[in-house]
């Protein structure tokens, strides 16, 4: 602090001195640490920031199969938001996202709590719940496509047992197909959420539980008011993992519904893929992916502002 105010009040003569110090601080100090971090810094600069900038720039061009530098303003975006398939995709991913996020977190947490009750055969249960996560979304999608197929799957089976009025045709139902995706997604991902949250639960000091029991706090209140707040870090990690899985949802849709019936289970990532590679319209695909990126930022920035705001000690 004293240093800073000194250089502020110093005359122009010490400006050169200041820039030398800046150089020193930037490059010479902790040189080996900075050298070691260079590959990662370059990766971030080139792969993440560089490619993002490239994507955004070319979303303002009329690039088709190959990138072109001809700028067309917001044309790609105008077309994007007047496209019925894109708008349906956005709506679908929102429905899927909110439902899937709520259910994976709640069900995953309840399963973790269940596993934390010192039950017998815990590792067997854990394996069973986690097993679907070892399968790709493609396999998951194909399996559930058969289970939910009204002609062969659950509906046909239950009807053949005599319950002829039973219907479960979500895959063919334009209004319910997104929830069919949610079910398959839950089946695949909940075990993983459970394992993450279970690790968080196990990290809670046992004496906290004892203290709560002595205080006479009911178990469910201990979970909600004491344990959950203590698991904040694990929960944020889980939310980020689940959230990124939702945003990039693609393979499950391709395997399970191909976006159908009609366009009623289309998702943004599939739109990006189809227009970039299938339709050879790079500009349109990049505009769509830029919008996806923007959405992620809109969700993340308020959270980051809260999380990383300078902490004040009162």
């Amino acid at each position: 602090m004293a240093d800073l105010s000194h250089s502020r009040s110093a005359s122009a003569g010490s400006a050169a001195n200041g820039s030398r110090r800046l150089f020193h601080n930037l490059f010479v100090r902790n040189f080996s640490a900075k050298l070691a971090a260079t590959p990662m810094i370059m990766t971030v600069l080139i792969v993440f920031i560089g490619c993002t900038a490239w994507t955004i720039f070319y979303s303002f061009t009329n690039s088709r199969s190959l990138p072109s530098g001809e700028l067309v303003g917001f044309d790609q975006y105008t077309r994007l938001f007047s496209n019925r398939r894109w708008n349906a995709s956005v709506l679908n991913i929102m429905t899927y996202g909110v439902t899937s996020l709520c259910f994976t977190m709640v069900v995953g947490f309840l399963l973790a709590v269940f596993m934390d009750q010192k039950i017998r055969f815990e590792s067997a249960f854990r394996t069973v719940f986690l097993y679907p996560f070892a399968l790709s979304f493609i396999v998951t999608g194909l399996v559930w496509q058969w289970i939910m197929n009204p002609a062969f799957g659950l509906q046909a089976a239950v009807q053949s047992w005599g319950f002829t009025s039973f219907t479960f045709d979500w895959l063919k139902n334009r209004n319910m197909v997104v929830y069919a995706l949610v079910i398959a997604g839950l089946w695949q991902g909940t075990g993983f959420v459970m394992v993450l949250l279970l690790a968080g639960l196990r990290g809670i000091d046992e004496e906290i539980w004892k203290a709560a029991r002595v205080d006479g706090i009911p178990t469910w209140k201990t979970y909600i008011f004491v344990v959950l707040p203590m698991m904040r870090g694990v929960i944020v990690t889980t939310l980020v993992i689940v959230g990124s899985g939702i945003v990039r949802l693609y393979d499950l849709v391709v395997a399970m519904t191909q976006g159908g019936p009609g366009i009623s289970s289309e998702v943004p990532a599939k739109y990006v893929y189809n227009y970039m590679f299938g339709a050879g319209n790079l500009g349109q695909g990049l505009a769509a992916s830029s919008v996806m990126l923007l959405t992620v930022f809109i969700i993340l920035i308020p959270w980051m502002l809260i999380e990383f705001r300078p902490k004040s000690h009162s």
């Binding site: 088709r64 496209n83 019925r84 398939r85 349906a88 334009r174 976006g259 159908g260 019936p261 009609g262 366009i263 009623s264 189809n274 227009y275 299938g278 339709a279 050879g280 319209n281 349109q284």
Partner: peptide, 19 residues
């Protein structure tokens, strides 16, 4: 037709046929 146009027509036809 360009594949871009085909894709758009395909999206429209599929939507119409399902809805």
């Amino acid at each position: 037709l360009s594949s871009d146009t085909q894709q758009q027509l395909q999206d429209l036809e599929i939507e119409f046929f399902s809805d």
